[in-house]
Computed example of a mutant assay.
Amino acid sequence: MRVGLHALGIGDGARPEVIRSVATAAETHGFARLWCGEHVVLVDAPVSRYPYSADGRIAVPADADWLDPMLALTFAAAVTSRIELASGVLLLPEHNPVLVAKQAASLDVLSAGRFSLGVGTGWSAEEFAALGVPFAKRGRRTEEYLAAMRTLWSQDPASFTGEFIRFEAIRVNPKPLRGGHLPVVIGGNSDVALRRAATLTDGWYGFNIPTADVPAHIAVLADECARHGRAFDELTIAVAVSDATPEHLPALEAAGITELVIVGAPPPTPDAATTWVTELARTWIRPKR
């Protein structure tokens, strides 16, 4: 089982010198992938419930620095050469899919094919309102945008007609490096997110899930794969587990996780960030036999 690190882009993890230290140390010590999430907008007193905590509140202060994930990961790509990169997650229905398709393919090219696009539907009605995007139908919008982006990545010129986006005979380059295919991962812990992972994407990213609940989520994912004729082993399954300890690693791997994602906030100085990543690696990454 691989181990990823979700630590870039927020607070001290938004500082370029800290990103450099975290990224290079993670690559040196064997982390498989760097993850970076997104919020364009936070508000001081949200009405919308955050779905990844028991109290419904996001832990990040509204006034914290939060980098655009595509830019943060491009910076990380420039200071590394092997470690994979993923948005975890980009809130796709908030964006123009033509622009996202170009940005994602550009990052894939600049990273020499190391990028996976993690997307989610979003949860904050306040954020959608600030961006002028309808909160309703965001799931359908996400599904359509994925189809449109895959058309752009694989065809040149490309045409698409849908409910939310239309274009005719346009050229959007560069293309992703893997034969016009860029791996897409869907984020979210709901059964709907698991269905989308099984039917629409290359993998699933579950976030802040208790260890005891992981097998049930993976069982739903496996059932959805079987229901829709999808081979379960085609999917990557990355999960950030809220209460995992190193002793849980064998059970999590046996449950079907292909990548355990460690979520954390790095310290504010480069040297301390390097030491922090080194200690995480000693704790979580098992030596190869």
Rank of each mutant, 00 (worst) to 15 (best):
R2Q: 14
G4P: 10
H6C: 13
A7F: 05
I10L: 12
D12E: 13
P16H: 13
R20N: 09
V22H: 10
T24D: 11
T28M: 09
H29L: 12
H29E: 11
F31S: 09
A32Y: 11
A32E: 13
G37A: 15
V41K: 08
A45D: 15
V47A: 15
P51L: 14
Y52E: 13
S53P: 11
I58K: 03
A59W: 08
P61L: 12
A62I: 06
D63K: 12
A64D: 14
D65S: 15
P69R: 08
L73R: 09
F75K: 11
A77D: 06
A77V: 07
T80S: 07
T80I: 08
S81L: 05
S81R: 15
L85C: 08
V89H: 02
L90R: 06
L91R: 01
L91T: 14
L91C: 11
L92Y: 11
H95F: 15
N96D: 15
V98E: 03
K102D: 02
A105I: 05
V109I: 08
L110G: 01
L110E: 02
L110P: 02
F115V: 07
S116F: 00
L117D: 00
V119C: 01
V119T: 06
G120E: 02
T121D: 01
A125Y: 04
A125P: 01
A125F: 03
E127S: 12
E127R: 02
F128E: 04
G132N: 08
V133Q: 11
R140I: 00
T142W: 02
Y145G: 11
W153L: 06
S154R: 15
P157M: 12
S159A: 12
F160W: 11
F160M: 10
T161D: 13
E163Q: 14
I165K: 09
I165N: 11
A169N: 15
R171K: 12
V172H: 08
V172G: 04
P174L: 07
G179L: 05
G180D: 08
N189A: 08
N189H: 05
R196F: 00
A198T: 04
D202L: 00
D202Y: 00
G203H: 02
I209G: 02
P210G: 02
T211I: 02
A212Q: 09
V214Y: 03
V220L: 06
V220W: 04
L221P: 04
D223V: 00
E224P: 01
C225I: 03
R227D: 05
R230K: 07
E234M: 01
T236P: 00
T236N: 06
T236F: 00
V239W: 01
V239S: 01
E253S: 12
A254T: 04
A255K: 05
L260F: 05
I262G: 09
V263T: 13
V263N: 11
A265K: 04
A265V: 06
P266N: 07
P267N: 03
T269P: 06
D271E: 13
W276A: 12
W276P: 03
L280Y: 11
L280K: 10
A281G: 04
A281P: 02
I285K: 02
I285A: 06
P287L: 09
